[in-house]
Amino acid sequence: MASQIPAIEITGLTKDYSVGFWRKRMRRSLDHLSLRVEEGEIFGFLGPNGAGKTTTLKLLMGLIFPTDGTANILGRPIDDISMHRDIGYLPEHPYFYDYLTARELLDYYARFSHYPAEERRVRVARVLERVGLASAADVQLRKFSKGMLQRAGIAQAIIHDPRLVFLDEPMSGLDPIGRHEVRDIILDLKTQGRTVFFSTHILSDAEMLCDRVAVLHEGKLRGIGSPGKIVSLEVQAMEILFEPVENQPLPSNLAQHATPVGGRYRMEVPEAELYRTINDLRSCSARILSVSPVRPTLEDYFLGLVERKPNAPVEAHAQ
């Protein structure tokens, strides 16, 4: 999968913003970020609000300029305009010329790739179909809902068949069907051998789609690797779901740890106490419905990261 030239190579990328009335104080938004994304990967860029995800994407797009560090996209420096022929970008909360229709907007963007009129027409129709906007093709964008704008944004990012697509919060504002369709588009791009770099805070999407993820917090890279590697696969606890005998109270040692869930009980116990708990349940004739290991999710990792003090040690792997 990996070619010699990475799709994205970021080295020590740093961005400081001047803040305050006199703009003399500096606030670091991105702190020496280094990472490498291989061609053909779906790469998730995770982090809470204000982590530096959008800043990174804006730096890569040349919308803002780095305080320090460098980045190459498809082997070319980010200030090389020719590189932009091979990339697509969906900004966060996209907004477009609201006096244009979706068809006109996509035709406008396709002109930057020098396609002749007939090819533009075919491409625009195809991509509108792909993002589910074919029926709204001739509606002015001022009448679009947030979800429709998001779809138009994705359409403009892929209208020219880029090798690498950057998506900033692509699922934002979409209903479940829309999210499912965007997931399909991302997977389609991967099937076509494209690289997708997307930022998100919807962790289930990242777990489902990404070959690798990077977690960013307070401008610093906290971890990078496959979702399974980022999250330790060690069992944290065992979950037992059981049904007590009708009209028979639970023994106090079980009752204090069990949570009633619709006539059933759920409890989490340390792995070492599993058999003792099962014996306790058997002794009071409870019906054990399931016993399953509890593993941390990416969400748990994410929450732990946010709650962790900034200088606390990072447990995730750094590449």
């Binding site: 804006k58 797009m61 040349g62 919308l63 305009i81 020719s82 932009h84 022929r85 990339i87 697509g88 970008y89 969906l90 900004p91 909360h93 996209p94 907004y95 477009f96 010329y97 963007y109 930057f112 790739s113 944004g153 403009q156 990012a157 950057f166």
Partner: peptide, 14 residues
Amino acid sequence: EKRTLYSLLSKPIR
């Protein structure tokens, strides 16, 4: 202000 420039400058335009 409307951020229409963001997607535009991602195209090959200086």
